Computed example of a mutant assay.
Amino acid sequence: MELKSSVKDAMKDAMRDKDKPRLGTIRLIMAEIKRIEVDERTEIDDERLLTILDKMVKQRRDSAKQYIDAGRTELAQVETDEIAIIQEFLPEALTEEELNALVAEAVNESGASSMQDMGKVMAILKPKVQGRADMGSISGKVKKALL
């Protein structure tokens, strides 16, 4: 609940500062929270909110890449700006060394020896890296470690 209240506080601050781009992005976050709460009739906890924010960042990265490929750099910049705002609410990103150490630790902990054990390794890693690293890059590191 702490994360959700910090998003609400940031929205109030953006309103006071009349920061329209920031306010718009934070409103998108709040709208997604509300949508899920209404659809599922549940209160979102911090862990679930991290998942939501992570998904929003991934969507924007994909959109920015498509805009760049289409030559629409101004729209890609909007997406990049939104990513920066959303990432303010995510925990600090892990470094490459930390990621490699976590992958090695998870492989050892799960006793994984082949690609068939990748699910076990990912199940151990996901709660540790949620919101702090891109799961696609983690998946690639796990594949390398298991080959």
Score class of each variant (00 low, 15 high):
117 D>I: 07
108 N>S: 14
143 K>I: 10
37 E>D: 06
107 V>W: 02
138 I>T: 04
94 L>K: 02
83 I>G: 11
62 D>F: 05
97 E>T: 03
99 L>R: 10
142 V>I: 12
58 K>M: 11
41 R>I: 14
42 T>D: 09
100 N>M: 08
32 E>P: 00
137 S>T: 15
116 Q>S: 15
107 V>I: 11
90 L>F: 01
98 E>R: 03
129 V>R: 09
135 M>F: 05
118 M>W: 05
76 A>E: 00
47 E>A: 15
81 D>V: 09
58 K>W: 02
80 T>Q: 10
128 K>V: 02
24 G>K: 10
141 K>L: 08
57 V>A: 03
62 D>N: 14
89 F>N: 03
81 D>K: 10
54 D>M: 07
43 E>N: 04
33 I>R: 08
33 I>V: 10
85 I>W: 03
137 S>L: 05
126 K>W: 02
22 R>P: 06
105 E>Y: 06
125 L>N: 09
28 L>G: 10
39 D>T: 10
23 L>T: 04
20 K>F: 14
20 K>D: 03
85 I>Y: 00
87 Q>K: 04
102 L>C: 03
28 L>Y: 05
88 E>V: 05
136 G>E: 13
73 T>D: 15
31 A>I: 12
59 Q>G: 12
33 I>W: 06
122 M>N: 08
23 L>H: 09
101 A>S: 09
58 K>C: 10
93 A>F: 02
52 I>W: 09
62 D>E: 15
57 V>Q: 00
81 D>W: 12
